[in-house]
Structure formats: structure tokens, C-alpha cells
Amino acid sequence: MPEIPVLRARNRALIPLLLLGIALVAIASLMLGAVPIPTARLLDAALGHGDPVVRAILLELRLPRTLVALMVGGMLGLAGAALQGYLRNPLAEPSVLGASNSAALGAVAAIYFGIGDYSPAVLPVLSILAALASLALLFVLAGRAEGPLALILAGIAVSTLAGAGISLALNLSPNPFAAMEIMAWLLGSIENRAMDHVWIALPCIVGGAALLLWDGRALDALSLGEDGARSLGVDLARTRARLLLGVAIGVGGAVAVSGSVGFVGLIVPHLVRPLTDRSPSAVLLPSFLGGAALLTGADILVRLIPTAGELKLGVVTAFLGVPVFLVHLLKERRLW
């Protein structure tokens, strides 16, 4: 039988390369920071002996921080890729359906009412619950409509409502410190994350990612439009339910432990897409891996760049993201 070249030899190396990249960034993230830990001592600590201070830094500070960066970055990248595919819109990103803003509102409420002080779990849990509530609202507003436009509009409504809630909290905040705390959280950071945060985010992100990865084929079919997809046997209602649930749970879990980290979900799918065959399904997993590597790398920069105050992760991703994104779009624009 004659070969169909592209379908066969489609960038087999991409996933292994991204995994290698993740491994390198993760090791760098464990080694670099205010106290650099050289490779030898890293190995010692990993094997359970060596300097107890180094072990404490490694296991209680750097490891959870690195794990959170990998999970959050991966989830944001994957959610962006899935939403771009589902909405057939290259501008879609994880926040487009309102899950990010709603999760942020949940966290802001925890800070505003001071209930976050009872336990470190209160803030993230409230944040995830708010993301799920936004999903319910989204279903009420656009549950039955088929096209992407109704969903986008409903998402904007939900997102704006949550944004208004955040503004209200800032407006009415009892003292400048509360407002500062809310602002700092909104900028996005994964500093001082403990293993508790990892355990809170992990189930959400695993569940959300599984739901989003499940529907790759349906996203491919949707590149032919709704009728085209349904005539290929896609159950659009179930696809939509899985996608919205996956985004709400996954992004909710990610925002719950990291605050609002922008741009990763928008740019990562665009960066990996040219390395794939450009079908929505082919972009999903590479976006997860690329997002994980990118956010971990950005978090290393946060630690290394000397600034007067502490630099926030969300600020770095935005500054890194915009130029990369612009250059990329200029190269790719002939295709749109």
C-alpha cells in the first residue's frame, strides 16, 4: 500500500522532547533560587541523607513549588488548547468561560471575609467551589445552544459578573492590607506553596485534564462545523458537558493554588500548534507539557530576577508571553 507520509511521520519526537524539557526545567527549578543547591547535594537530599537544611528547602519549599508550577502550567495550557479547539477560536483561553475569574472570586471572598486564616485549605476549596458554581450558571445561560457564540457570550457574562464581585471586594475592603493581599493574590504567584496545595490541586487537575483529553477526536470533528461533527457521530451535548466540567474543575483547581496566571493558556497552544499537524486533538497533550515547562521556567525567572519587591508569576508570564506571541502570530498569520 502506498505510504501516506504526513499521517505516519507526524512529529513523533515532539512528546519525548517536551518531556525531556519538563525534566530539565523541573531539576533546574529544584536547584535554583535564593540558595542554589548543586547537583551533588540535590542527589544526596533526594536519597535521604545530607544536610537537613538543604533537605528542608528541597522537600518543603522547592518540591511543592515545582509540582504546583508543573500542574498549573499544564492545566492552563491544556484548557487553552481544548477551548481553542472547541470554540474554533484561536483567541480562546482558560478564562474565556469565566472559570478563572470565578475561582479568583472564591479566593478573594476567602481573603475578604478573613476565613482563609482558619486553614490553608479554605481558600483553594472555596475557589474550586466558585468555579463549579460558575459552571452551573454557564449551563443555565447557554446550556442548550449549539454554536460556540452563545457559550462565549455566556462566558463573558459569567466572567464579568465574577470580575465585578472582585472589584466590589477591593472597593469595600476594610483596610489597605486586605486590599493589598487581594491584589497580590490576583497577580498570581506560587511562592510558599506547601504539599497541602499540591494535594488540593492534584485531583482537580487530574480529573479536569482527563475530561479534556478525552474529547480530542470530537474537537477534530468540530473543525468541520457542528453539523459536520455530528454527521461523524459526535455527541455534541456530551462533548460540551465534558469540556465545560473539565475546564471548571481543572482551571478552578489551578487558580485555587496559583491565583490568576494569565497568558499561558493563550500562548502555549499557539506555540506548539506549528509543531503538530494543527488538528485540535494533536495540540492537547503537547499544550499540557509545554504549559508545564513554560510556567516552571517562568517561576525560575521570578526567583532569579533581582527586584526590590517580590516579582509575581502572573506578571512575568504576561511580559514573556506578549513578545513571543506577537512574533509567532506575525509568522503564522498567512494561515488565518
Binding site: G85, L224, D277, L335
Partner: peptide, 25 residues
């Protein structure tokens, strides 16, 4: 002839095989 992503011709034609494929296969 709606097509929302710049797929290669082969990839596009291969979409026709979806009814026989399971998720992630």
C-alpha cells in the same frame, strides 16, 4: 466547505474515519 483549522489535506480527509474510532485511539 466550512473548515476551522488549517489542517493538511490528508489530516482533513482522515477525519472521515472518526465514526469508527474510539476516544484517544
Amino acid at each position: 466547505q466550512a473548515l476551522h483549522w488549517p489542517l493538511s489535506v490528508e489530516r482533513l480527509v482522515a477525519l472521515g474515519r472518526l465514526p469508527g474510532l474510539g476516544p484517544m485511539s
